[in-house]
Amino acid sequence: MIRTPAGPVRVLSLHLAHIAAEERLEQIDYLLGEHRRAPSDGGPWSGADDEPQRNWSNGQAEPENPQAAIWLGDFNMEAGSVEYRRITGSIPYHPGAAYIDGFVDAAAVAREPGPDFHTHEKILDGRLAKRRLDHCFVGGMLAGRVRSVTADVGEVASDHFPLSIDIDLETPGIGPSLAGR
């Protein structure tokens, strides 16, 4: 959890399974469950100090466990896949709509849509497959803050390319009801 000028945000670095969609779906369901529990879960403190004589708080105030979240990582899935749709939902008649406890693909809501890009290259069945396996999903309350999403295509320091997201986390205004305290 990081306190940005916009408000506290949970930032996750994720790496999902690389073989079966069904395995990734179980992992996504677990993560969505954790996400929706955040307001009542309370984070690592899980509530008020009931033994003040032991100084569990270490003299600090209980930190936030905000609903606001950003998922970054290697999801081993492509846009439009069943796993991708489990995260973003299906809103065929209202593109751009966002639920308060749901996620949107930062690349799909960016104000400055960049050129199409991929984050991974591999020979699959004799053909060079250029796939976007790395993603950034932002909670619905952050959907209007994404400026751009790009990748450093061609970098050789790994078998993936770095994914960069420009997002306004400077302007205050993530509602206090989403701050998780």
Binding site: D74, S158, I165
Partner: peptide, 15 residues
């Protein structure tokens, strides 16, 4: 703010 996600493959490049 600028955010980056990067699978570094434990520092092993495609080369």
């Amino acid at each position: 703010m600028k955010l980056i996600s990067y699978n570094i493959q434990y520092g092993y490049g495609s080369d």
